[in-house]
Design a binder for these strands. Structure first.
Lengths: 212, 212
DNA sequence: ATTTGTGAACAGTTTCACAGCG
DNA sequence: CGCTGTGAAACTGTTCACAAAT
């Protein structure tokens, strides 16, 4: 009972997407083939993922989730529960901040961004004091030099980085110094971070190059 | 001479990021260890990637790129050239469009988004005719029902999807019908697309869940 | 001595085949 | 029969070790 079984990254990503799909799914039951049709994933991938999920639930002994699947498809309610458990989301809202309030960053000040999500934005930062004063939002905006204390005081663990390329690594270093654990990087740059900090790259230009 | 050697996806992604790094790199030469230090990737990964790149150049017989690497590091100019060749970017600017002009989509109307990139935004679309009329941008905005002819006429091959969740699949289907080949999906939804259409998921909420 | 080039070993992911259950 | 559960097989990606080059 100590094999420390982890859900694979690839499966985790799919489960996050599946959860979104289930949130707007009204039927009582769903089969792996239904999911396959709506996502384009192979039905065997879906079953395999769900099998891994169950394995992880059993091994962590949290709850022996009963999918009640065989020959009937999965009950959607059970699936939602199982995925939430496995991903450890929705238990406690996590605090985030936005770093860089240019056009893109400012667009994220919209309160709708995080509604129905397990995240709360607690702060916005920009080196340009002017922007900090002019922009309106539901949460406070601060000049960038106040990042360290704000992040600590507000217990912010995640950041969305929307600064210019030249500021990307500098601001990342400051975020790390303040103890941030996850960064959503909307710049084109590769961020150098210590191994405990997770980065997800979301640059639109880079994405266009990939799908091109 | 017919083994159709393809650059692996993982390598391609890293090369896109490396290219961005090289663009702001002023030294004449760079070693795999230098790159490793600035990206966090293992130096062996870098060498392996570059080796694959060279293989692909040799096999496609385009140009036998001489990295001139051994014991000296790589010449940055050569690397840039090789990556550009391998990725087939920068040859011809590709036409894009933005679908959904809410707060996030509207932020992308900024001309700076695609400057210094091999992309040109040719059109923006929204179902809300009001938005189309009010918003200002360097390129024309159209009501969503005009998508089909605009995409064909302007030879648009890529789209950035910034609509609401409920419109995501509907708009995707229209984009596909109009012949789009790549979609940067900023919604939380999994998009169902035919195999020839590439999708890159860039939802901020999903990304926060991953780095959480 | 330093750094690339190369392929083999290893780890992670996807696909497949089919047993077993309702 | 239709659908899940399961592990093996095939595939992709990463790491390692060291020969070759200067």
């Amino acid at each position: 009972m100590n094999t420390t079984f982890e859900i694979p990254k690839a499966t985790e990503r799919r489960m996050i997407l599946l959860m979104n799909l289930l949130d707007s799914y009204t039927e009582d039951k769903i089969t792996s083939v239904d999911i396959s049709r709506q996502t384009g994933w192979k039905d065997s991938v879906v079953r395999h993922d769900l099998w891994l999920l169950k394995k992880s639930a059993v091994e962590s002994a949290e709850t022996t989730i009963n999918f009640d699947g065989v020959s009937n498809g999965y009950r959607t309610a059970d699936l939602r529960e199982a995925i939430n458990q496995a991903l450890g989301l929705e238990i406690q809202k996590k605090n985030c901040c936005i770093v860089g309030l240019g056009r893109l960053g400012a667009a994220l000040l919209d309160e709708k961004l995080t509604e129905d999500s397990p995240f709360v934005i607690k702060a916005g930062f920009d080196s340009n004091v002017n922007r900090v004063e002019i922009l309106r939002s539901n949460f406070p905006l601060y000049p960038a030099h106040e990042m360290n204390w704000v992040i600590k005081q507000e217990k912010i663990s995640l950041a969305v980085l929307t600064v210019t390329d030249k500021d990307a690594q500098v601001m990342t270093d400051r975020l790390i110094a303040a103890g941030i654990l996850g960064i959503v990087n909307m710049t084109r740059c590769v961020l150098k971070v210590p191994p405990e900090v997770k980065v997800e790259n979301l640059s639109i230009i880079n994405a266009l190059k990939i799908v091109n």
